[in-house]
Design a protein around this nucleic acid. Structure first.
Lengths: 150, 150
DNA sequence: ATACAATAGTTGTAGATACAATTAAATACC
DNA sequence: GGTATTTAATTGTATCTACAACTATTGTAT
């Protein structure tokens, strides 16, 4: 098991708290990069994949942009342009909302749903990396991260 | 304590493992953004700050670029351009290595050291956010993240 | 009704990132 | 000594991100 000390070649942290901060950032980046590499074979970025999953959760009910944004892992991504990328690939559909013309109804297409199914099937193998933890450990990790954010 | 479910407005995850993955990515992004906002008052980005700390760790011995890269949290950042930004600000010094002219010796300047001291002093308050965890919990978190990465 | 404020989304743009191609220097091979 | 390989870093470029400014539509108050 590679300690965070060896990963960033630092023998000594100021405190267990600072070490935890670096560890979260490092592990987050590590996980993101694994994810990105895996998803690249399907020609989607992690955030595009995330948005597709969010839309599948709401399907067949469309969602407006703001609702997608507040569910995204990285709130800073520009949802307009991200959705436009997905639209060009035919994975989502955009329609001006009839009742409120400021608002855009976005929904996942059949092509988008099929892609998610394909990715889900392929990701079983990938997800096994997370199985380094027992279920109880995963639960404890979730508890600690939630508590950390206060 | 805000659960990851409420943060990303998803009631139900496929498994505790998938939830942990989302939780790490989300918490990593959360921590990164807090960090970035804090450091902005000192006109450095999180990765620039990280490189300065790495160089302080080696001070007064200079480091070559490749050694900096492998200690960085995000290995993808372009160290050449990042170091150049720091050099323009006067926080680091670059010198072609006499013994091996392919290689560049990079070291932190007094100005860089002073900036780190200033940031360290100011970050006491900021770091208190991490104190939502007890020391034992921080240790357990570190253990779980290390184990997760396998 | 008109003016003001709030909401929903888009666009501009400077800067950062990913990744491959390239330069340059040192080392190895024959 | 001359060619090939490896090592160290830089550069090119398309894409992405952050963040502010902007447009358009709807809601509210007088």
């Amino acid at each position: 098991m590679p300690s965070i000390e060896s990963e960033v070649k630092q023998e000594k942290f100021q405190s267990e708290f600072q070490k935890a901060a670096v560890n979260i950032l490092f592990t987050g980046s590590w996980l993101y990069n694994r994810n990105a590499t895996f998803l690249k074979t399907f020609d989607v970025t992690p955030e595009q994949f995330n948005v597709l999953r969010i839309l599948r959760g709401s399907h067949p009910k469309p969602m407006m942009l703001a609702d997608i944004t507040c569910r995204m892992i990285d709130k800073n991504s520009n949802a307009t342009r991200l959705v436009e990328k997905l639209r060009v690939k035919g994975l989502v559909k955009r329609e001006i909302c009839k009742n409120n013309r400021r608002q855009v109804d976005i929904s996942i297409t059949d092509k988008g749903l099929n892609l998610l199914t394909k990715i889900d099937r392929a990701s079983d193998a990938w997800q096994s990396t997370l199985k380094n933890l027992t279920k109880a450990e995963a639960q404890e990790l979730n508890r600690l991260l939630d508590k950390l954010r206060g």
